[in-house]
Amino acid sequence: MTARTTPVTQSHSPATRHMTRHLLTSGLFAGLAAGLVAALLQFWLITPLLLEGELYESGIRTHFAASLNAPVQSPAGPAEGLTQNLSRHAMTAGFDMVAYTAFALILLAGMALAERFGHPLTVRSGLIWGICGFITMHLAPAIGLPPELPGSVAAEVELRQAWWLGTAVVTAIGLGLIAFGSGALPLIGVAALALPHIIGAPHLDTYFGIAPPELAAEFASRSIGVAAASWVALGGLGAYFFTRNRES
């Protein structure tokens, strides 16, 4: 136990500063790498659907159910231009890396906090951290606010952002109580997971869909799948970078 407390409990000691820098750089490396994974998966699986959705958003294509004058079926198939507009896709890759770096820093702060309370981190437990991050930041919000094609009409964006953030915070607390709580705390954690969905996400009282439901459904499921894969990569990479070279 002396080993745990001796070198690092004094604030502003060199070891403390070193660990903070190590935490930040680990998050940066893991976030950039996982963001790259997310960007590649996104270009493969999501961007084609997004561009196809924009054909309906802009009115180049019309869903047959949305207009009396439209043909009996909606045309399917990818939009042209996946390789055009490279600056747009470069921005997307860049923002994927920013977003996953943000996720990485938050996730690694949680990992470091758990270590302070005596739960050592390994790469394998990092994978579980990644799954929990996916549930917190993607799956739980998606239950109330499904991933949307461009052009979808929905409730006020500020209301949805507030519900999204509240859901992420409450879900993180709930998963933390389930993972680390004792006594009745895990049960309270389960209740916390359910709470945002009992309250319910802001929704309109009418449907406005302009794109075919098949396209919107495939977009939503691929968005969730890509996020799951990227988050597991993030959890494993974050734990790898944070736990390696600790002897030095």
Binding site: T6, V8, S11, R116, E247
Partner: peptide, 29 residues
């Protein structure tokens, strides 16, 4: 032995989480 279980300061953890939240606001909100 001294470093197999390394503690990060609470201030460092808070700083890291705050940096992540700031980036999240920029990227997402």
């Amino acid at each position: 032995l001294a470093l197999t279980h390394v503690d990060t300061s609470f201030a460092g953890i808070a700083l890291t989480a705050l940096a992540g939240l700031m980036l999240l606001l920029i990227a997402g909100f």
